[in-house]
């Protein structure tokens, strides 16, 4: 299926784990739930999360990243060359097991293949989004004990991510999202970091988005002409859509994954607010180049709030779709717009 409704609604990736899954994980850690039982719980959670997205009306769902504790840790556990020393705090009372690179990064086998196949199998939609953490973010959010330079590490990671993406595409993945929230962190590294992202997606002939959030987008947009991805999926609602104006300043003719609901607050937006924001984005982007998503993953919100936010996102989008329908604009394409 290469045709999508105009302004396709999608997610960034993560979704709150159901309470019973968190309990199953806790019991598994305590040795009271077997590996097999935990796998079943993960599978059931994906079905439940898929159902939430279906009821909310999301066009391109994900598996909610039910199996991933954290976006860097998950991949570091599955690659050679990483080691974990212990948790590191990210803010307040939130921690992650920040990995250390202690040897050459190695691809040990598919990391997301099972996850993707199961998601595809239980999906109500022929297209699911497959998020994968990008090479720069994995490197930036790890400790580098082995490589002489961060750049060397990032480019080795790009090679293994590329290998994984090829495996996923071969298995039928149609929409890949490379998560690179760290990309704008260091102004002087953005240019080569973009080259590394390009290396990671080289030869990937399906739709590819890059997700960035909570950073200075201008650092990336000034190199937009180098980016070999089809779409930037970005956070906007958290900043009252202010960064939209940057897209007038910089030459950018790729697609935009437009963040219309804030994932850092439990306050659920109004559909009218979403619709208004989309109309604002349509002043800059042609409708065929606009996808609609939340700002970021919804995993930190209560499940009820996450669901409501998705519903509002869809309702607001539908309002604008009606307006576009009157102009005869009803569909867009899943085909990649960049030849990689």
């Amino acid at each position: 299926m290469s045709e999508l409704p105009i302004l396709p609604t999608t997610v960034i990736g993560s979704y709150p784990r159901p309470k019973w899954l968190r309990e199953a994980i806790r019991l598994h850690k305590a040795g009271k739930v077997s590996d097999e039982e935990l796998t079943e719980a993960f599978d059931d959670a994906v079905v439940a999360v898929m159902r939430d997205q279906q009821v909310a009306g999301v066009d391109i769902p994900s598996d909610g990243e039910m199996r991933r504790d954290e976006m860097v840790e998950y991949f570091a556990e599955k690659l050679g060359g990483f080691r974990f020393y212990g948790p590191v705090r990210v803010w307040g009372t939130a921690y992650y097991r920040k990995p250390s690179v202690v040897g050459r990064v190695e691809y040990l086998g598919p990391m997301l293949l099972h996850e993707f196949k199961f998601t595809q199998h239980v999906s109500y939609s022929p297209v699911v989004k497959v998020p994968i953490t990008g090479p720069y973010t994995i490197a930036e959010w790890s400790f580098n004990e082995y490589y002489k330079t961060k750049r060397d590490l990032v480019f080795d990671l790009a090679k293994v991510i590329n290998q994984e993406l090829k495996t996923l595409v071969e298995a039928g993945a149609k929409f890949i999202q490379v998560d690179e929230p760290a990309l704008p962190t260091h102004e002087d590294e953005v240019e080569w970091a973009i080259d590394a992202v390009n290396e990671a997606v080289k030869g990937i002939k399906v739709k590819v988005a890059v997700h960035i959030c909570y950073g200075d987008y201008s650092r990336v947009l000034r190199y937009a002409d180098r980016l070999k991805v089809d779409q930037l999926a970005l956070e906007f609602a958290n900043r009252n859509f202010e960064p939209l104006k940057l897209f007038k300043e910089y030459k950018y003719d790729l697609e935009l994954g437009f963040g219309v609901v804030d994932v850092h607050t439990n306050k659920v937006e109004e559909p009218q607010t979403v619709a208004k924001a989309i109309r604002k984005a349509l002043e800059i982007f042609p409708p065929e180049r606009l996808f609609i998503n939340p700002d970021c993953g919804l995993k930190l919100r209560p499940r009820r709030v996450a669901f409501e936010k998705l519903k509002v996102m869809v309702e607001g989008t539908r309002m604008v779709r009606e307006e576009l329908k009157k102009k005869g604009i009803t569909t867009t394409s899943l085909k990649p717009i960049i030849n990689r």
Binding site: R89, V90, W91, G92, K98, W141, T185, Y214, H264
Partner: peptide, 14 residues
């Protein structure tokens, strides 16, 4: 107020 990156670290402060 909200969380903001503490300089260029993956650590956030209010």
């Amino acid at each position: 107020n909200g969380l903001v990156r503490f300089y260029d670290n993956n650590f956030y402060y209010r």
